[in-house]
């Protein structure tokens, strides 16, 4: 990179919208988990449902729209752990970047 290019890039502005979109893409992929023969996205909705049910086994529609019978507690624990880990990473990376100008 030459000096002219360096000076030009030094005046660059941080693009918050692109960053936000990129982080959403990045961490959405990390929320996907394969478990008990299905592919799941760890979301508050599914975790909430698994928490509220009392049955040992439940049937849920997975990411590929197939009904899958799962052990409720096992899937809950996997998704809950994934969700928390990923969301904290997402949050901390966003916090780190949102102050940039």
């Amino acid at each position: 990179m030459d000096t002219k290019q360096l000076l030009s890039d030094a005046r660059a502005r941080f693009n918050h919208n692109s960053t936000k979109a990129h982080l959403k893409d990045k961490y959405s992929s990390k929320l996907i988990v394969a478990d008990q023969g299905g592919l799941w996205k760890a979301t508050p909705e599914i975790i909430g449902f698994l928490s509220s049910s009392t049955d040992e086994f439940v049937v849920l529609v997975d990411t590929f729209e197939n009904p899958v019978m799962v052990n409720r507690i096992t899937l809950h624990d996997v998704l809950y752990k994934t969700y928390n880990e990923v969301m904290f990473l997402w949050f901390s990376e966003w916090k780190e970047l949102e102050g940039k100008r």
Binding site: S8, D9, R11, A12, R13, F14, N15, S18, T19, H22, K26, E93, L97, K100
Partner: peptide
Amino acid sequence: IRKEYTIVKDT
């Protein structure tokens, strides 16, 4: 041209 940038990691 308006230069814009972002930082990506582990992607």
